[in-house]
């Protein structure tokens, strides 16, 4: 499977990619902002998206909204520091499949990946 990882922090992308590698995923596309994420989604056959919320150009919420507007059901996990109830609700309403709040423990991320990563 091919996974898109969108985060403006290079180190956070590497943390997520290490976790993806640990569950056997090596086909990974990276994006450093929201617009890059949308472009990458539109030009690749993506099976799972992990996206930050606060990014330059377009936010993670914009990414979710635009991809869902295309009629896509691709699983999207929001990985973000935004943890207030209203924001979680907004993300769910926009169409996220799951939500992981930073900071997280390595096992928390792996548990989310286990739900969506297929052999």
């Amino acid at each position: 499977m091919r996974v898109l990882v969108a985060d403006d922090s290079g180190i956070m992308r590497k943390i997520i990619i290490r976790s993806l590698n640990s569950v056997g995923v090596t086909d990974i596309v990276e994006a450093a902002d929201g617009q890059e994420a949308i472009n990458a989604y539109n030009s690749n056959d993506i099976d799972l998206i992990l996206t930050d919320w606060n990014m330059p150009n377009k936010s993670g919420l914009d990414v979710v909204t635009e991809i869902r507007a295309q009629g896509s059901n691709v699983p999207i996990i929001m990985v973000t520091t935004e943890a207030q109830k209203g924001q979680v609700i907004a993300a769910i309403q926009a169409g996220v499949s799951d939500y992981l709040t930073k900071p997280f423990e390595a096992d928390d991320l792996r548990a989310k990946l286990d739900k969506f990563v297929t052999a």
């Binding site: 922090s9 180190i11 956070m12 606060n54 520091t81 943890a83 709040t101 930073k102 900071p103």
Partner: peptide, 14 residues
Amino acid sequence: IDTVGELTNMIGGS
């Protein structure tokens, strides 16, 4: 540099 930025982001956000 990114590590320091991300730790700051997480402390500030949470």
